[in-house]
Design a binder for these strands. Structure first.
Lengths: 155, 155
DNA sequence: CCATATATTTAGGTTACCCTAAATTTATTT
DNA sequence: AAATAAATTTAGGGTAACCTAAATATATGG
Protein backbone atom coordinates (compact mmCIF):
# COMPACT_ATOMS: atom_id res chain seq x y z
CA UNK A 1 0.00 0.00 0.00
CA UNK A 2 2.84 2.31 -0.90
CA UNK A 3 0.92 5.58 -1.24
CA UNK A 4 2.67 6.86 -4.34
CA UNK A 5 3.70 10.43 -4.57
CA UNK A 6 1.52 12.44 -6.93
CA UNK A 7 2.68 14.72 -9.68
CA UNK A 8 1.74 17.82 -7.91
CA UNK A 9 3.36 16.62 -4.73
CA UNK A 10 6.64 16.46 -6.62
CA UNK A 11 6.28 20.12 -7.49
CA UNK A 12 5.76 20.99 -3.88
CA UNK A 13 8.80 19.02 -2.79
CA UNK A 14 10.97 20.60 -5.42
CA UNK A 15 9.76 24.04 -4.47
CA UNK A 16 10.36 23.43 -0.80
CA UNK A 17 13.81 22.16 -1.66
CA UNK A 18 14.64 25.27 -3.57
CA UNK A 19 13.22 27.68 -1.03
CA UNK A 20 14.97 25.87 1.81
CA UNK A 21 18.43 26.15 0.31
CA UNK A 22 19.47 29.06 2.45
CA UNK A 23 17.95 28.54 5.84
CA UNK A 24 17.09 24.88 5.69
CA UNK A 25 13.42 25.59 5.88
CA UNK A 26 10.74 27.70 4.29
CA UNK A 27 7.23 28.91 4.97
CA UNK A 28 3.77 28.19 3.72
CA UNK A 29 3.44 31.69 2.40
CA UNK A 30 6.58 31.46 0.30
CA UNK A 31 5.59 28.14 -1.20
CA UNK A 32 2.24 29.64 -1.94
CA UNK A 33 3.85 32.55 -3.78
CA UNK A 34 6.22 30.35 -5.73
CA UNK A 35 3.58 27.93 -6.88
CA UNK A 36 0.84 30.47 -7.38
CA UNK A 37 -1.48 28.62 -5.14
CA UNK A 38 -3.39 29.94 -2.17
CA UNK A 39 -1.87 29.38 1.29
CA UNK A 40 -4.84 27.28 2.33
CA UNK A 41 -4.08 24.80 -0.43
CA UNK A 42 -0.41 24.71 0.45
CA UNK A 43 -1.28 24.05 4.05
CA UNK A 44 -3.33 21.04 3.03
CA UNK A 45 -0.72 19.58 0.73
CA UNK A 46 2.11 20.15 3.17
CA UNK A 47 0.32 18.44 5.99
CA UNK A 48 -0.35 15.53 3.68
CA UNK A 49 3.30 15.36 2.70
CA UNK A 50 4.27 15.47 6.32
CA UNK A 51 1.97 12.57 7.15
CA UNK A 52 3.68 10.67 4.37
CA UNK A 53 7.10 11.44 5.72
CA UNK A 54 8.40 13.76 3.02
CA UNK A 55 8.50 16.97 4.99
CA UNK A 56 9.25 17.96 8.54
CA UNK A 57 6.65 20.28 9.62
CA UNK A 58 5.51 20.63 13.06
CA UNK A 59 5.48 23.31 15.49
CA UNK A 60 6.80 26.62 14.39
CA UNK A 61 5.69 27.50 10.92
CA UNK A 62 8.73 26.02 9.34
CA UNK A 63 8.60 23.57 6.50
CA UNK A 64 11.65 21.48 5.64
CA UNK A 65 12.39 18.24 3.82
CA UNK A 66 13.11 14.87 5.33
CA UNK A 67 15.88 12.83 3.69
CA UNK A 68 13.16 10.94 1.88
CA UNK A 69 11.68 14.18 0.63
CA UNK A 70 15.05 15.55 -0.35
CA UNK A 71 15.73 12.49 -2.43
CA UNK A 72 12.55 12.98 -4.42
CA UNK A 73 13.13 16.71 -4.76
CA UNK A 74 16.64 16.23 -6.06
CA UNK A 75 15.70 13.67 -8.63
CA UNK A 76 12.87 15.86 -9.88
CA UNK A 77 15.24 18.77 -10.03
CA UNK A 78 17.75 16.81 -12.05
CA UNK A 79 15.10 15.76 -14.52
CA UNK A 80 13.94 19.31 -14.88
CA UNK A 81 17.38 20.62 -15.49
CA UNK A 82 17.96 18.10 -18.23
CA UNK A 83 14.74 19.11 -19.86
CA UNK A 84 15.56 22.77 -19.71
CA UNK A 85 19.01 22.29 -21.17
CA UNK A 86 17.57 20.12 -23.81
CA UNK A 87 14.84 22.48 -24.84
CA UNK A 88 17.08 25.52 -24.84
CA UNK A 89 19.60 23.64 -26.98
CA UNK A 90 16.78 23.11 -29.36
CA UNK A 91 16.14 26.82 -29.42
CA UNK A 92 13.11 27.07 -27.16
CA UNK A 93 13.27 30.37 -25.25
CA UNK A 94 14.47 29.87 -21.71
CA UNK A 95 11.27 30.98 -20.03
CA UNK A 96 9.09 28.67 -22.06
CA UNK A 97 11.59 25.87 -21.68
CA UNK A 98 11.33 26.22 -17.94
CA UNK A 99 7.59 26.20 -17.94
CA UNK A 100 7.33 23.20 -20.19
CA UNK A 101 10.04 21.35 -18.31
CA UNK A 102 8.06 21.85 -15.16
CA UNK A 103 4.96 20.48 -16.79
CA UNK A 104 6.40 17.36 -18.31
CA UNK A 105 9.11 16.44 -15.87
CA UNK A 106 6.77 14.27 -13.87
CA UNK A 107 5.37 12.16 -16.57
CA UNK A 108 8.26 11.00 -18.70
CA UNK A 109 9.33 7.42 -18.89
CA UNK A 110 12.82 6.91 -17.45
CA UNK A 111 13.90 5.58 -20.82
CA UNK A 112 12.92 8.84 -22.44
CA UNK A 113 14.70 10.82 -19.79
CA UNK A 114 17.77 8.70 -20.39
CA UNK A 115 17.79 9.59 -24.07
CA UNK A 116 17.27 13.26 -23.42
CA UNK A 117 20.16 13.08 -21.01
CA UNK A 118 22.25 11.38 -23.64
CA UNK A 119 21.44 14.08 -26.10
CA UNK A 120 22.38 16.86 -23.73
CA UNK A 121 25.58 15.09 -22.87
CA UNK A 122 26.34 14.48 -26.51
CA UNK A 123 26.14 18.18 -27.19
CA UNK A 124 28.12 19.06 -24.09
CA UNK A 125 30.81 16.47 -24.72
CA UNK A 126 31.47 17.59 -28.22
CA UNK A 127 35.02 18.85 -28.60
CA UNK A 128 33.66 21.71 -30.66
CA UNK A 129 32.02 24.40 -28.59
CA UNK A 130 29.35 24.87 -31.18
CA UNK A 131 29.23 21.74 -33.32
CA UNK A 132 28.69 22.15 -36.99
CA UNK A 133 25.42 20.27 -37.12
CA UNK A 134 24.01 22.41 -34.32
CA UNK A 135 25.02 25.55 -36.15
CA UNK A 136 23.31 24.10 -39.19
CA UNK A 137 20.23 23.39 -37.16
CA UNK A 138 19.99 26.97 -35.96
CA UNK A 139 20.43 28.19 -39.48
CA UNK A 140 17.77 25.80 -40.62
CA UNK A 141 15.39 27.22 -38.02
CA UNK A 142 15.90 30.71 -39.39
CA UNK A 143 16.00 30.13 -43.10
CA UNK A 144 14.07 26.92 -43.43
CA UNK A 145 16.74 25.51 -45.72
CA UNK A 146 19.13 22.79 -44.75
CA UNK A 147 22.67 24.23 -45.15
CA UNK A 148 23.99 20.85 -46.23
CA UNK A 149 21.98 20.98 -49.41
CA UNK A 150 24.51 23.13 -51.21
CA UNK A 151 27.52 22.58 -49.01
CA UNK A 152 30.69 20.68 -49.60
CA UNK A 153 31.11 19.58 -46.01
CA UNK A 154 28.05 17.96 -44.58
CA UNK A 155 27.06 17.66 -40.98
CA UNK B 1 -17.01 31.89 -20.79
CA UNK B 2 -15.27 29.84 -23.43
CA UNK B 3 -15.42 26.44 -21.69
CA UNK B 4 -11.91 25.28 -22.51
CA UNK B 5 -11.31 21.79 -23.64
CA UNK B 6 -9.59 19.68 -21.02
CA UNK B 7 -6.55 17.50 -21.52
CA UNK B 8 -8.42 14.33 -21.24
CA UNK B 9 -11.08 15.58 -23.60
CA UNK B 10 -8.38 15.93 -26.24
CA UNK B 11 -7.55 12.27 -25.82
CA UNK B 12 -11.15 11.36 -26.33
CA UNK B 13 -11.42 13.46 -29.45
CA UNK B 14 -8.27 12.00 -30.92
CA UNK B 15 -9.43 8.50 -30.14
CA UNK B 16 -12.82 9.11 -31.68
CA UNK B 17 -11.09 10.54 -34.72
CA UNK B 18 -8.96 7.49 -35.14
CA UNK B 19 -11.75 5.01 -34.56
CA UNK B 20 -14.06 6.86 -36.93
CA UNK B 21 -11.69 6.77 -39.88
CA UNK B 22 -13.41 3.88 -41.57
CA UNK B 23 -17.09 4.32 -41.01
CA UNK B 24 -17.24 7.92 -39.98
CA UNK B 25 -18.40 7.04 -36.53
CA UNK B 26 -17.54 4.81 -33.61
CA UNK B 27 -19.12 3.43 -30.46
CA UNK B 28 -18.85 3.98 -26.76
CA UNK B 29 -17.59 0.49 -26.22
CA UNK B 30 -14.72 0.89 -28.66
CA UNK B 31 -13.63 4.18 -27.18
CA UNK B 32 -13.77 2.53 -23.82
CA UNK B 33 -11.51 -0.27 -24.99
CA UNK B 34 -9.04 2.05 -26.66
CA UNK B 35 -8.69 4.36 -23.70
CA UNK B 36 -8.89 1.71 -21.03
CA UNK B 37 -11.72 3.43 -19.34
CA UNK B 38 -15.07 1.99 -18.34
CA UNK B 39 -18.00 2.56 -20.70
CA UNK B 40 -19.84 4.52 -18.06
CA UNK B 41 -17.06 7.07 -17.94
CA UNK B 42 -16.92 7.30 -21.70
CA UNK B 43 -20.63 7.89 -21.80
CA UNK B 44 -20.27 10.82 -19.45
CA UNK B 45 -17.39 12.39 -21.29
CA UNK B 46 -18.96 11.93 -24.68
CA UNK B 47 -22.18 13.55 -23.64
CA UNK B 48 -20.19 16.45 -22.23
CA UNK B 49 -18.27 16.78 -25.48
CA UNK B 50 -21.51 16.69 -27.37
CA UNK B 51 -22.97 19.48 -25.26
CA UNK B 52 -19.87 21.48 -26.07
CA UNK B 53 -20.23 20.88 -29.76
CA UNK B 54 -17.25 18.63 -30.39
CA UNK B 55 -19.05 15.41 -31.16
CA UNK B 56 -22.24 14.43 -32.88
CA UNK B 57 -23.94 12.00 -30.76
CA UNK B 58 -27.57 11.58 -30.85
CA UNK B 59 -29.88 8.77 -30.63
CA UNK B 60 -28.44 5.74 -32.25
CA UNK B 61 -25.29 4.73 -30.50
CA UNK B 62 -23.01 6.37 -32.95
CA UNK B 63 -20.33 8.82 -31.96
CA UNK B 64 -18.72 11.06 -34.56
CA UNK B 65 -16.85 14.34 -34.66
CA UNK B 66 -18.19 17.73 -35.60
CA UNK B 67 -15.92 19.92 -37.74
CA UNK B 68 -14.93 21.70 -34.56
CA UNK B 69 -14.07 18.40 -32.93
CA UNK B 70 -12.18 17.20 -35.97
CA UNK B 71 -10.05 20.30 -35.92
CA UNK B 72 -8.98 19.67 -32.35
CA UNK B 73 -8.42 15.99 -33.00
CA UNK B 74 -6.25 16.65 -35.99
CA UNK B 75 -4.08 19.19 -34.31
CA UNK B 76 -3.57 16.88 -31.35
CA UNK B 77 -2.72 14.10 -33.72
CA UNK B 78 -0.18 16.20 -35.52
CA UNK B 79 1.47 17.18 -32.27
CA UNK B 80 1.63 13.59 -31.19
CA UNK B 81 3.17 12.45 -34.43
CA UNK B 82 5.88 15.07 -34.17
CA UNK B 83 6.64 13.96 -30.65
CA UNK B 84 6.84 10.33 -31.63
CA UNK B 85 9.14 11.02 -34.56
CA UNK B 86 11.23 13.19 -32.39
CA UNK B 87 11.59 10.73 -29.56
CA UNK B 88 12.32 7.82 -31.84
CA UNK B 89 14.97 9.88 -33.64
CA UNK B 90 16.52 10.35 -30.24
CA UNK B 91 16.55 6.61 -29.75
CA UNK B 92 13.58 6.16 -27.46
CA UNK B 93 11.91 2.81 -28.22
CA UNK B 94 8.80 3.25 -30.31
CA UNK B 95 6.39 1.94 -27.70
CA UNK B 96 7.67 4.22 -24.99
CA UNK B 97 7.84 7.12 -27.39
CA UNK B 98 4.18 6.64 -28.16
CA UNK B 99 3.18 6.49 -24.53
CA UNK B 100 5.16 9.55 -23.59
CA UNK B 101 3.99 11.45 -26.61
CA UNK B 102 0.44 10.77 -25.56
CA UNK B 103 1.15 12.05 -22.10
CA UNK B 104 2.86 15.29 -22.98
CA UNK B 105 1.17 16.23 -26.21
CA UNK B 106 -1.46 18.24 -24.40
CA UNK B 107 0.73 20.37 -22.28
CA UNK B 108 3.47 21.73 -24.48
CA UNK B 109 3.79 25.35 -25.36
CA UNK B 110 3.30 25.96 -29.09
CA UNK B 111 6.77 27.45 -29.22
CA UNK B 112 8.23 24.21 -27.93
CA UNK B 113 6.23 22.22 -30.42
CA UNK B 114 7.53 24.48 -33.15
CA UNK B 115 11.12 23.72 -32.22
CA UNK B 116 10.50 20.01 -32.00
CA UNK B 117 8.96 20.23 -35.42
CA UNK B 118 11.99 22.10 -36.68
CA UNK B 119 14.25 19.45 -35.31
CA UNK B 120 12.33 16.65 -36.93
CA UNK B 121 12.29 18.52 -40.19
CA UNK B 122 15.98 19.29 -39.94
CA UNK B 123 16.73 15.61 -39.68
CA UNK B 124 14.33 14.70 -42.43
CA UNK B 125 15.54 17.42 -44.78
CA UNK B 126 19.13 16.47 -44.49
CA UNK B 127 20.51 15.38 -47.88
CA UNK B 128 22.25 12.54 -46.09
CA UNK B 129 19.93 9.71 -45.17
CA UNK B 130 21.73 9.21 -41.92
CA UNK B 131 23.62 12.41 -41.12
CA UNK B 132 27.03 12.09 -39.62
CA UNK B 133 26.19 13.83 -36.39
CA UNK B 134 23.22 11.55 -35.84
CA UNK B 135 25.39 8.52 -36.42
CA UNK B 136 27.78 9.98 -33.91
CA UNK B 137 24.98 10.49 -31.47
CA UNK B 138 23.91 6.86 -31.70
CA UNK B 139 27.46 5.76 -31.22
CA UNK B 140 27.75 8.06 -28.24
CA UNK B 141 24.66 6.47 -26.72
CA UNK B 142 26.26 3.06 -26.97
CA UNK B 143 29.86 3.75 -26.04
CA UNK B 144 29.52 6.87 -23.98
CA UNK B 145 32.37 8.46 -25.89
CA UNK B 146 31.97 11.26 -28.36
CA UNK B 147 33.35 10.00 -31.70
CA UNK B 148 34.60 13.48 -32.53
CA UNK B 149 37.12 13.34 -29.75
CA UNK B 150 39.61 11.37 -31.76
CA UNK B 151 38.31 11.99 -35.21
CA UNK B 152 39.65 14.04 -38.05
CA UNK B 153 36.27 15.06 -39.39
CA UNK B 154 33.99 16.50 -36.76
CA UNK B 155 30.25 16.66 -36.78
C1' DC C 1 2.21 42.46 27.61
C1' DC C 2 -1.54 43.71 24.84
C1' DA C 3 -3.41 45.06 20.46
C1' DT C 4 -2.96 44.78 15.91
C1' DA C 5 -1.08 42.74 11.88
C1' DT C 6 0.34 38.64 9.61
C1' DA C 7 0.42 33.70 8.86
C1' DT C 8 -1.82 29.44 8.99
C1' DT C 9 -5.61 26.23 9.43
C1' DT C 10 -10.39 24.67 9.06
C1' DA C 11 -14.70 24.26 6.90
C1' DG C 12 -17.37 23.95 3.13
C1' DG C 13 -17.37 24.09 -2.02
C1' DT C 14 -15.98 23.15 -6.92
C1' DT C 15 -14.17 20.67 -11.03
C1' DA C 16 -12.37 17.02 -13.66
C1' DC C 17 -11.98 12.28 -14.05
C1' DC C 18 -12.65 7.84 -12.74
C1' DC C 19 -15.35 3.66 -10.64
C1' DT C 20 -19.24 0.00 -9.54
C1' DA C 21 -23.81 -1.55 -9.69
C1' DA C 22 -28.25 -1.09 -11.18
C1' DA C 23 -31.36 0.52 -14.58
C1' DT C 24 -32.63 1.00 -19.30
C1' DT C 25 -32.31 0.85 -24.10
C1' DT C 26 -31.02 -1.45 -28.46
C1' DA C 27 -29.89 -5.66 -31.00
C1' DT C 28 -30.21 -10.49 -31.97
C1' DT C 29 -32.08 -15.03 -32.02
C1' DT C 30 -35.48 -18.10 -32.23
C1' DA D 1 -42.58 -10.56 -31.50
C1' DA D 2 -40.76 -12.24 -27.18
C1' DA D 3 -36.81 -13.49 -24.75
C1' DT D 4 -32.19 -13.03 -24.10
C1' DA D 5 -27.89 -10.78 -24.83
C1' DA D 6 -25.22 -6.72 -25.40
C1' DA D 7 -24.54 -1.77 -25.11
C1' DT D 8 -25.37 2.36 -22.85
C1' DT D 9 -26.94 5.45 -19.22
C1' DT D 10 -27.95 6.76 -14.47
C1' DA D 11 -27.11 7.00 -9.73
C1' DG D 12 -24.17 7.23 -6.13
C1' DG D 13 -19.27 7.40 -4.77
C1' DG D 14 -14.26 8.45 -4.65
C1' DT D 15 -9.78 11.15 -5.15
C1' DA D 16 -6.74 14.94 -6.09
C1' DA D 17 -6.20 19.66 -6.37
C1' DC D 18 -7.86 23.85 -6.10
C1' DC D 19 -10.77 27.94 -4.06
C1' DT D 20 -13.08 31.47 -0.53
C1' DA D 21 -14.26 32.91 3.89
C1' DA D 22 -14.01 32.44 8.54
C1' DA D 23 -11.46 30.89 12.51
C1' DT D 24 -7.20 30.64 15.06
C1' DA D 25 -2.49 31.02 16.08
C1' DT D 26 1.84 33.57 15.95
C1' DA D 27 4.67 37.78 15.65
C1' DT D 28 5.56 42.54 16.45
C1' DG D 29 5.23 47.51 17.81
C1' DG D 30 4.20 50.50 21.30
Amino acid sequence: MLARIGRRAEDYLETIHELSKEKGYTKIKDISAKLNVKPASVSEMVSKLSKQGYVVYGKRLFVGLTPKGREVAESVKERREILVKFLTTLGVPREIAEEDACTIEHVLNPETVKQLKNFVKFVEDSPAINPKWLKHFREFCQKGIHPCEHASVRC
